[in-house]
Design a protein around this nucleic acid. Sequence first.
RNA 1: GGCUGUGUAGCUCAACUGGAUAGAGCACUUGACUACGAAUCAAGAGGUUUCAGGUUCGAAUCCUGACACGGUCACCA
Length: 620
Amino acid sequence: MEKTLPAILEAGVQAAITDLYGADGTAVEITLQTTRREFEGEFTVVTFPLTRVARKKPDEIAEDLGQYLKEKVAEVADYNVIKGFLNLVISDEYWRDFLLTDGIADDYGQGAPKGETVVVEFASPNTNKPLHLGHVRNILLGWSSAQLLAKAGYEVKKVQIINDRGIAICKSMLAWQLFGGGATPESTGIKPDHFVGEYYVRFEQKFQEEYKAWQTTVEGKKTFALHGKPGQTTEAFFKGYSKKYFNEYSVLGAQASEMLRQWEAGDEATRALWNKMNGWVYKGFEETYAALGVNFDKLYYESNTYVLGKDMIDKGLEMGVFHTREDGSVYADLTDAKLSEKTLMRADGTSIYITQDLGTARLRYDDFGATRMLYTVADEQNHHFATLFELLKRLDEPYAPGLYHLSYGMVDLPTGRMKSREGTVVDADDLMKEVIHEARLVSQERAATSDLSEDDREEIIRQIGLAALKFHIIKVGPKKRMTFDPKESVDMQGQTGPYVQNAYVRTRAVWRKAEENGVAIDFALAKDYTKLAPAERELINQLYSFPELISTAAESYDPSLIAMFCYELAKNLHKFWHDHSILSAETPAAVAFRLQLCKAVGNTLQAGMRLIGIEVPERM
RNA sequence: GGCUGUGUAGCUCAACUGGAUAGAGCACUUGACUACGAAUCAAGAGGUUUCAGGUUCGAAUCCUGACACGGUCACCA
């Protein structure tokens, strides 16, 4: 394909304007859109904007243009005009030729290499707890975006930064030391990240007990009397006082803080314990990533990167975009960018969170030479990333224009927000187990795969369950806060992953059948199939739009577009399947053509689903 | 309170970035398997796009102002 249809049509319309109305057609913006289902045609020219240059009524313009295009542009076979909209019908020959060349190519949709590298960050968990539903959305979004960018022709590096240090992991470590009694994941048979997470929870429990008890002591009562606001209940007061208690009165708090100090001082025993427990967590995370079907090209650890960024501060000071206060602390004044005054280094010379992010960005650029960097992080950090990007822009970093915060809405349950304190957090491993279990139940009601081995059946069930879960999450636009209903996530009918998988399975089944029958099919005949049915045109038209969609979805970092595309394509395949015979079609040419159509649709469904991290089985 | 995001069918979500009669799925009602696979298809019902103004040939989309619900306003991470 030399030029795309939209480009051909646009040029045609512009030529028509020049020829028919004597205006400079190339200066006119052409509004071209895909034709709505209920009308005949594939592309539509909106003529309202042309009334000025043509000095005619919309319907008349449409009529003029339609005739002109039908005569002069080979690809346009026919047209119709409805209320100022010019619907163009693309010729059967064009569609057929497209299908039999590009459409059935194995790598259809793969963009040409752009020679640019993109770093995509996602997941980035803390190491004190197992992954949960929020991480799942993050991971699916990040992974899908990475696949999309790769498909669009970018070189992609998938990374994450692991928050492996700080007070949180120290709490787990301390609790294990105090209450673990030497237990290990091996000795208990618990998945290692869950094992560590249990000690984090244990710490919080013990801390709460200690806190509760303290509240009734003389000291506790005195604190309330002294700091409680008038009319405030003791309960409300102590709820807000917990952090202060942790830092100033709590025995456990003091011990955890001491552990953090030991860690920072490089105390050997503390480091060893830290290594051991983080090691457990990583082992558990690996399992979860593998189950989700994701991997990374490089891992960054906060314990290494938290010291970075000092040289960035020096650079900023040198450039005059950062300033020093009297006490020696460093800040940047971002008020003219509608952001606040941001401190970057404390008076004592220690750095803060955003400083290491400056350093990490630079490190990644040095590692990969990326021109774009994508951060998959929940929208609660919008402000942080706006600040970070503004700082890097002012530092004139070469990758600054390509920074993007893939900000997504948090996941709610039907009962409201997930609260770890209330035990409503949905665990990632449990969730996967649950959807696979549900797929198994549904599968057992069917006999479609009963001839397969136990292992093969189980593999298919796994793919179906995960498809249900992943599709359910990824079909929602990233920006949108989503409500996750576990009941709906295991649905396998309608707008779901298994529905799409089923369409793929059908395209494979018909080929299998054709081979079983042993009939020699002459695929050269496919080019003799001249009159396309509406359902066939629809499918081919949709296949045709795939590369453009990949590009759009990649540039807007929106994998949900791909999910919706897969669903629509599957839907049209199902309808086609229902309305038309394939192996017993009217003519040998039709048989050959439709098999090729099935192949192209199957390939594209597989490619599309792969982009959103979903596998398609051969049978189900 | 400042900044910011969201508000569309009972529920979960779309709407090609200003275009045609606002579309899907779930749930509900009804029909189609001796067909290449019914995890399917077809039909029905379901809407004042939160509200009020404005911009224009044309608004769910852009502007103004309300209302509701999130998020965020650290020398925490």
